[in-house]
Amino acid sequence: MAYTISTTVSMPFEEAVTAATEALKAHGFGVLTTIDVKDTLKQKIGAEFRPYRILGACNPQMAHQALQAEDKIGVMLPCNVIVQEHAPGRVEIAAVDPVASMQAVENPSLGEVAGSVREGLRQAIADLEARS
């Protein structure tokens, strides 16, 4: 089973980060955290890396439902969305598939929430694909 929902867009990296954030917002997700992997690797270990950002996306209503269904599910929140540049103007945006990531948790109520989250993330990725 694939564990991501992704697309590749033709736009500059920073524009893709902004577009991803906006697409997530349009489907009920906020970005709680942003990790600049390129900058972090440079600062921590001196490594050069391509532009790569991890966005911690959360839909508060769905997160609340998930936490009510499974009290330890917070270890899998927020949903990570990556934005990485493969070549100038060619940027991949990929979201975790929450159904795949929560497959090990045997809780039907959680599965329903994961399905709703997956659909919202799919729609956000589809919006990005349509913009490219």
Results as ranks from 00 to 15, higher is better:
residue 1 M to K: 12
residue 3 Y to Q: 03
residue 3 Y to S: 04
residue 3 Y to F: 06
residue 4 T to V: 15
residue 5 I to M: 00
residue 7 T to W: 07
residue 9 V to A: 06
residue 11 M to A: 03
residue 11 M to W: 00
residue 11 M to P: 00
residue 12 P to E: 15
residue 12 P to Q: 14
residue 15 E to C: 08
residue 17 V to A: 01
residue 17 V to L: 06
residue 18 T to F: 07
residue 19 A to L: 03
residue 19 A to F: 00
residue 19 A to V: 05
residue 20 A to K: 05
residue 22 E to V: 00
residue 23 A to M: 07
residue 24 L to G: 04
residue 25 K to G: 08
residue 25 K to V: 04
residue 25 K to P: 13
residue 27 H to W: 10
residue 27 H to C: 11
residue 28 G to H: 04
residue 31 V to P: 08
residue 31 V to S: 06
residue 32 L to I: 08
residue 32 L to K: 03
residue 33 T to S: 15
residue 34 T to C: 10
residue 36 D to A: 05
residue 36 D to S: 03
residue 37 V to F: 08
residue 38 K to I: 00
residue 38 K to P: 08
residue 38 K to A: 14
residue 39 D to H: 09
residue 39 D to W: 03
residue 41 L to G: 02
residue 41 L to V: 08
residue 42 K to R: 15
residue 42 K to M: 14
residue 44 K to L: 14
residue 44 K to D: 10
residue 45 I to N: 06
residue 46 G to F: 05
residue 47 A to V: 10
residue 48 E to H: 11
residue 48 E to I: 09
residue 48 E to P: 13
residue 51 P to Y: 06
residue 51 P to D: 01
residue 51 P to I: 06
residue 53 R to E: 10
residue 54 I to L: 15
residue 54 I to T: 06
residue 55 L to N: 02
residue 55 L to E: 01
residue 55 L to M: 02
residue 55 L to H: 00
residue 56 G to N: 06
residue 56 G to L: 09
residue 57 A to F: 04
residue 58 C to H: 08
residue 58 C to D: 09
residue 59 N to E: 07
residue 61 Q to V: 07
residue 63 A to Y: 05
residue 66 A to R: 09
residue 66 A to K: 10
residue 68 Q to R: 12
residue 70 E to V: 07
residue 71 D to F: 13
residue 73 I to D: 08
residue 73 I to Q: 09
residue 73 I to H: 10
residue 73 I to A: 11
residue 73 I to W: 12
residue 75 V to F: 15
residue 77 L to W: 04
residue 78 P to T: 01
residue 78 P to L: 03
residue 78 P to R: 04
residue 80 N to V: 05
residue 80 N to Q: 13
residue 80 N to P: 14
residue 82 I to A: 09
residue 86 H to V: 09
residue 86 H to R: 09
residue 87 A to C: 10
residue 87 A to Q: 15
residue 87 A to N: 11
residue 88 P to Y: 07
residue 89 G to P: 15
residue 89 G to Y: 14
residue 89 G to M: 15
residue 91 V to S: 03
residue 92 E to V: 01
residue 92 E to M: 13
residue 93 I to R: 02
residue 93 I to V: 15
residue 95 A to T: 05
residue 95 A to Q: 08
residue 95 A to V: 04
residue 98 P to M: 07
residue 99 V to S: 07
residue 99 V to N: 11
residue 99 V to F: 13
residue 100 A to H: 12
residue 101 S to V: 12
residue 101 S to E: 13
residue 102 M to C: 13
residue 104 A to L: 12
residue 104 A to N: 04
residue 105 V to W: 08
residue 106 E to W: 00
residue 107 N to L: 05
residue 108 P to S: 02
residue 109 S to P: 11
residue 110 L to C: 04
residue 112 E to A: 11
residue 112 E to W: 06
residue 114 A to G: 12
residue 114 A to D: 11
residue 115 G to D: 05
residue 117 V to H: 02
residue 117 V to K: 02
residue 118 R to V: 03
residue 118 R to E: 00
residue 121 L to M: 03
residue 121 L to D: 02
residue 123 Q to C: 11
residue 124 A to G: 12
residue 127 D to C: 06
residue 127 D to Q: 13
residue 128 L to G: 03
residue 129 E to I: 01
residue 130 A to Y: 03
residue 130 A to H: 12
residue 131 R to D: 07
residue 131 R to F: 05
residue 131 R to Y: 06
residue 131 R to E: 12
residue 132 S to Q: 14
